[in-house]
């Protein structure tokens, strides 16, 4: 049977057309995506991986809620200028406990992967409540409400930790039971700052650049 005859059959048969589209479009995913999902080095924790504490996890979810990743990447590329500007380039094993990933696609503001420890907690607090107090040119939105809301109100922390445990994050029963207490008396801004301060800090500098 030549190609035109085969195609005549496809274009006159709904089932064949559906199957053809599904088959042809699936090839790329099967060859390209499945091996990635099967690659252990992309999902196995190392000494560079940091399991988020309840407070940091709460902060991370606030980062997601406010859409910080719309304007800030968390991915230092292995380029001289980027390593100079931000620090060591990002490694895959640093993101093992990142669900979802927050690499971003746009830098309206600077990359944040190595922001941890670069500024004081107080600087972050002032900056988040009104960015232009510390950076006059800044076009970042102000987040005054973060300082007013208790961290525990936005956070079903035990349910979240249990969900993550089913995905393999090694939280113990004691960790989960103690979590609500850790959030007592903290506001959302405290949790977000805790997350920012831990970002990119677990990475252990190797000898090679």
């Amino acid at each position: 049977m030549n190609g035109l005859n085969l195609h005549k059959r496809i274009e006159e048969n709904t089932g064949l057309l559906i199957f053809g589209i599904l088959f042809v479009s699936a090839i790329g995913g099967l060859v390209q995506i499945l091996p990635i999902l099967d690659q252990d080095s992309l999902n196995t924790a190392t000494e560079n991986s940091h399991l988020y504490s309840p407070v940091e996890l709460t902060g991370r979810d606030i980062y997601i809620r406010e859409g910080c990743s719309v304007c800030h990447s968390q991915q230092v590329r292995p380029l001289i200028a980027e390593v100079e500007r931000y620090g060591a380039y990002s490694r895959a094993d640093e993101f093992i406990y990142d669900r979802p990933f927050l690499w971003g696609s746009k830098r309206t503001g600077p990359d944040l992967h190595r922001i941890g420890g670069k500024y004081t907690d107080d600087w972050h607090r002032v900056h988040l409540i009104d960015p232009r107090v510390v950076v006059a040119e800044s076009i970042m939105p102000a987040y005054p409400w973060l300082a007013e809301r208790p961290a525990s109100a936005a956070s079903d922390i035990t349910a979240k930790m249990r969900a993550l445990r089913t995905l393999g994050h090694p939280y113990s029963d004691e960790d989960i039971e103690a979590a609500p207490d850790e959030l007592v008396d903290l506001t959302e801004i405290d949790a977000l700052i805790a997350y920012l301060q831990v970002l990119g800090t677990a990475y252990v500098e190797e000898d090679a650049p």
């Binding site: 990635i36 999902l37 690659q39 992309l42 999902n43 895959a92 640093e94 993101f95 093992i96 406990y97 990142d98 669900r99 979802p100 990933f101 979240k160 969900a163 993550l164 995905l167």
Partner: peptide, 8 residues
């Protein structure tokens, strides 16, 4: 929470 971690 996404079924897939980080790079995946």
């Amino acid at each position: 929470y996404s079924l897939y971690p980080g790079a995946q």
